[in-house]
Design a protein around this nucleic acid. Sequence first.
DNA 1: CGCTCATTTGAGGAACTTCAAGGTCAGTGG
DNA 2: CCACTGACCTTGAAGTTCCTCAAATGAGCG
Lengths: 237, 237
Amino acid sequence: MANLDFRTTPVVEFDDTKIFGTADTAANFAKVVGDDASLQRKLSALQRGPVRFYQNNVIALNEDVADHLMFVVTGVVRSCKNRKSGNRSIVSFYLPGDFVGWVDAKLSLSIEASTDTELLFIKRTGLVSLAAQNVRVANVLLTATTNELARAQEHVLLMNKSAKCRAATFLSDLWVRLGKAQYLDVPMSHQDIADYLGLTIETLSRSITDLERAGLIARVPSRRLILQNHFGLRRVN
Amino acid sequence: MANLDFRTTPVVEFDDTKIFGTADTAANFAKVVGDDASLQRKLSALQRGPVRFYQNNVIALNEDVADHLMFVVTGVVRSCKNRKSGNRSIVSFYLPGDFVGWVDAKLSLSIEASTDTELLFIKRTGLVSLAAQNVRVANVLLTATTNELARAQEHVLLMNKSAKCRAATFLSDLWVRLGKAQYLDVPMSHQDIADYLGLTIETLSRSITDLERAGLIARVPSRRLILQNHFGLRRVN
DNA sequence: CGCTCATTTGAGGAACTTCAAGGTCAGTGG
DNA sequence: CCACTGACCTTGAAGTTCCTCAAATGAGCG
């Protein structure tokens, strides 16, 4: 809903030539198909990167992703609709290990870096023809798309619930997707979360405060949370 | 939101042995991969049906669809979440030519007949291994899932708009999906549409009345509409 | 016609948004 | 070290949209 500069005049600042080594903890594209070395070589041949993007920069407009798919190595990517009116909806967040870019042109979404992020770019046609030779790859792709479909459908369901329930479910889901660590370090801004949940930041803030007062979560400085009662969080109405 | 009998105690009344001839106008599963006769034979071997289901009956609970995918030949199928509280959200409508059942277990959705419908049942594993031998099949499956993903994402975007805009967009989209005929014969009930749009039937009714008064649509008896100003419908806020 | 069920209309209330102000935190420079 | 800044988050009060509840109207069918 905010009308910030970076949305109306987004700037792409990544340096295409700068190649980063992938940290051990970061998501690895080749690993998704298992340990077959020859297959991993073929997959590596299809990929370019990782390429780094800085927070709030546009990675691609959805018209551009016709021939490439992206794979998130580190950070968080958002796909969103920026309306002329200045308000915005975030359709999905992509975390390390997720593929971005299955949905082409029609929706004219903008793919942006919600945090600093590193991405691999993968030739779409090459990946599909690899899938047509190898059941394992075919299954990985089908699983990737149906998982994203499942998340989109859960997102739809979430939009029919109250503000407090949306916030609670979001935090709980994020905690699970990030690996159920002791602390939940929320990587994206409240504005991003609000735009994802279809709420204003004010309503989001009030909802989170309610959850805190109910003893379901506790706050630690700098966007860090403790989910004190995870089961309770999932039962909020 | 309604709490009707068929929701709390759904009855499956289809007769598994009753096989219908598919009308010429109905969607044809084998045709989706083109004219290759040998391929069509392999696909036919994977399918069972068409099986008929009557309006408001449960076709499958999402736990059941692990090994079968469905293909809509005639009628409309809905996938929905029925909550204990009695209220309901419809996640998606499937029209002739659509595949149903990509998303498995996790969401525990109920697949139901929104109108009388005829479905083909397709062995999931067989279809996937066929995709791993044939680029065309692989592409059809990938296209089917990404199209559904695109629709789900549009659905998310829709939930951030006003009631009147949701109704207008729904009618316009339905008209397009059904082939842009002169008349739009809305196949599903207002309750179904309301549950899809996250509105009450009252708000939906008021919204449609507003659209009529604005001259964007006109009503003809028995759920038939004329979209008098299709361009205007898409611009409603 | 008289039944039932679906849809429409109205009045009041709840939830969320809007607008406006105040607070917190990290980084910066005196 | 401390004040200053700007981005981000929180809180409060008023306004809007949609929901809830209740009743009226309309459509389909024996």
